[in-house]
Write a protein that binds this DNA or RNA. Structure first.
Length: 602
RNA sequence: GCGGUUGUAGCUCAGCUGGUUAGAGCGUCGGAUUGUGGCUCCGAAGGUCGGUGGUUCGAACCCACCCAACCGUACCA
């Protein structure tokens, strides 16, 4: 039988677990400052409580791990933390304060094909507000998400929280005649296509909206069979997110403006309502632009939503200083304000009332972001964001990392979203007769940890190893244990109420086969021990112990060549007084080594 | 699910147009050294060559099917 971990699952060692603990503590800290409190639900739920399932099927819902209980009810491992929360809230509705703010971290399970960085068990860390109907709750969630990113040490500008609203997307779909139950399938196809813009480009999206697309591996994906006009409409909407398109259009405009650029660009930089009118006149009179081009100009220079930079670039705190520094010739100078983004969409799509409610909600959120001082560096309203195809009903958001992530092989991997969320007003009410609004988000802890490792923001420093009491004389184990106890107590002090002070300092007696003394030092070395205690017959007779500083010994050994000399030197050792009644000298010697930087005591 | 690539020791990989007993480095373990880590030297263990079937006097190598992993793609509540 070969020992092997199940496919898609991973074992995790001490350093990973410590790093994760540290991460969770930082996230928890942010959530607590927003007034959220913890709750835990089990990893199993009844399958029908999880939301999507196939009724009357022998095998519940592909994609989830399920077992049949002995009462013939199907149970499944949870695949996210949102559906279980909805169940919990519905079940405890009377006793919970509303709005109910809660957070919880836990493993979730997906029975799917694992991929790079994608596992079948992974940790999520969610926060939700249940019973708050207003978009101000959604805005708060987005702001908390930004705070969480920064709380984890991700610098501003290396992440962005992108925000959209399902109702806007629904409006787009309605505008191209995809409303109603009978078009549910095509709606999904269209949304999926829109979501792939940054990966497969405008042309790829057009294909997916039309007849379909064959990718480079030869696999064909069926399209949504939209007409050219409908495709054009979706493209117009979605291209807001295309940086390439933005640059191309700006270049075309600059070219078209000719001499007029000199007067126009400064005007655009000092954007205001008044300046806009002035700019329009200037554009018409001096740069000979037509109305359509002027619209484009304003669109691109003052209102464009695609304000996040290319992956890998680092933004300073302030939006404007970034663009001034980055585009000194002003060609790509863009003024980005979330409220203006929404204004632009309202203007462009004013003919479609179905989109207005979503845009109104986005406008309200944009004002909250701006009043609270959360600029587009942190939270960016981008109506092309597609997320949460199933249960989201209003605002949606996702956290995206903007820096390069390299894997173990040194390859740059596309990372994208590390968390997301939105409003799910229908989820709790599945269990109840009354409607219960809710909003929340989820952080993919495992994925984020991989990314943070790359940023160097993960606490991966090795902890101090144990002080090892070696065994020279097998018959004196009791003496060695006593030494270890004395050291352990002295090095792990407690305050008057019995609470430990400071980080634990491990102390242990060597418990392997003591026959070969060299093995004991090898063990101590491998454990990253700062020092070892040695007491053989000689030391015992003299009332002494050897305290050996392993790091110092290693340094000293650099000059030693021959093995005999190396062994003879006993580098880094100090002979100190020791009797069971008087261990103070030994304790002091160990303390001194722990205090040395090389002793790992810092 | 679809397409491609790859499967030889714990790890990284050699292995010639098919040829007899399948190798190396690293790692592991033991010894040189019954009281001292590193270096050095010596030695050992470790393989159904992914599996099954076929072609052949003979298969790690050729063929078929299967399995798995990786990459892309699709799905991802």
């Amino acid at each position: 039988m070969t020992a092997r971990v199940p496919r898609g699952f991973v074992d995790r060692d001490a350093s990973e677990l410590r790093a994760q603990d540290a991460m969770l503590a930082k996230i928890r800290r942010v959530y607590e400052t927003y007034g959220f409190e913890p709750v835990e639900t089990p990893v199993f739920e009844y399958t029908d409580a999880l939301g999507k399932f196939l009724p009357d099927s022998d095998r519940p819902n592909e994609g989830v791990f399920s077992i049949e209980d002995d009462d013939e009810q199907w149970m499944s491992l949870r695949y996210d933390l949102t559906a279980p929360l909805a169940r919990y809230v519905a079940e405890n509705f009377e006793t919970l304060p509303k709005p109910y703010r809660s957070y919880r971290a836990g493993y979730v399970f997906r029975n799917e094909k694992p991929g790079p960085g994608r596992f079948r068990q992974f940790m999520q860390f969610d926060a939700d507000i249940v019973g708050a109907p207003n978009v101000s709750a959604d805005a708060e969630m987005a702001m908390m998400m930004a705070d969480t990113m920064e709380g984890l040490g991700i610098p501003r500008g290396q992440y962005v929280i992108r925000v959209n609203n399902r109702k806007v997307l629904d409006g787009v779909l309605e505008a191209i005649g995809l409303g109603g139950e009978e078009n549910a399938g095509r709606r999904l196809t269209v949304l999926r296509a829109m979501d792939k813009l940054d990966r497969i480009g405008v042309e790829g999206v057009r294909q997916l909206l039309g007849k379909g697309r064959t990718d480079e591996s030869g696999d064909f994906t069926a399209g949504a069979s939209l007409s050219d006009d409908e495709i054009g409409f979706v493209q117009q909407f979605v291209e807001a997110g295309s940086e390439e398109d933005r640059k191309r259009k700006i270049q075309t405009l600059i070219h078209a403006m000719g001499q007029g650029a000199d007067v126009l660009v400064p005007l655009m930089r000092a954007w205001s309502e008044k300046a806009q009118a002035e700019a329009e006149n200037t554009a018409r009179a001096k740069a000979n632009l037509d109305d359509a081009q002027i619209t484009d100009l304003l669109y691109l220079f003052t209102l464009h939503p695609a304000g996040y930079q290319s992956v890998g670039e680092t933004l300073p705190v302030d939006d404007n200083s970034y663009f001034e520094a980055h585009f000194p010739d002003n060609i790509y100078y863009l003024k980005i304000l979330n409220t203006k983004t929404v204004d632009l969409y309202r203007h462009h799509f004013s003919k479609y009332p179905s989109m207005q409610e979503g845009l109104n909600e986005l406008a309200a959120m944009a004002r909250m972001f701006e009043e609270a001082g959360y600029g587009t560096q942190r939270i960016l309203i981008d109506p092309s964001v597609v997320r949460g195809l199933e249960y989201y009903t209003g605002p949606v958001f996702e956290a995206e990392l903007l820096f390069d992530v390299t894997n173990e092989k040194g390859e740059v991997v596309r990372f994208g979203s590390v968390g997301g969320g939105g409003r799910y007003d229908g989820l709790v009410s599945r269990f109840m007769s009354q409607p219960v609004p809710a909003t929340g988000f989820s952080i993919g802890v495992s994925r984020l940890m991989t990314a943070l490792k790359n940023l160097g923001r993960l606490e991966t420093e090795r902890r101090i190893g144990p002080v090892v009491v070696t065994v020279m004389d097998r018959d004196r184990m009791a003496d060695y244990q006593a030494m270890a106890t004395q050291l352990r107590n002295a090095l792990n002090p407690k305050d008057e109420s019995g609470e430990p002070l400071g980080a634990p300092v491990p102390v242990e007696v060597f418990q392997g086969n003591p026959k070969q003394f060299g093995k004991q030092l090898q063990y101590a070395d491998r454990r990253n021990a700062p020092c070892v205690i040695i007491q053989g017959a000689d030391e015992k007779a003299a009332g002494k112990v050897q305290v050996k500083d392993l790091a110092l010994g290693k340094e000293l050994s650099a000059q030693i060549e021959g093995n005999a000399e190396w062994r003879e030197a006993r580098a880094g050792q100090e002979l100190v007084d020791y009797t069971p009644e008087n261990p103070e000298a030994m304790i002091a010697a160990v303390r001194a080594i722990l205090a040395r930087p090389s002793g790992g005591g810092a």
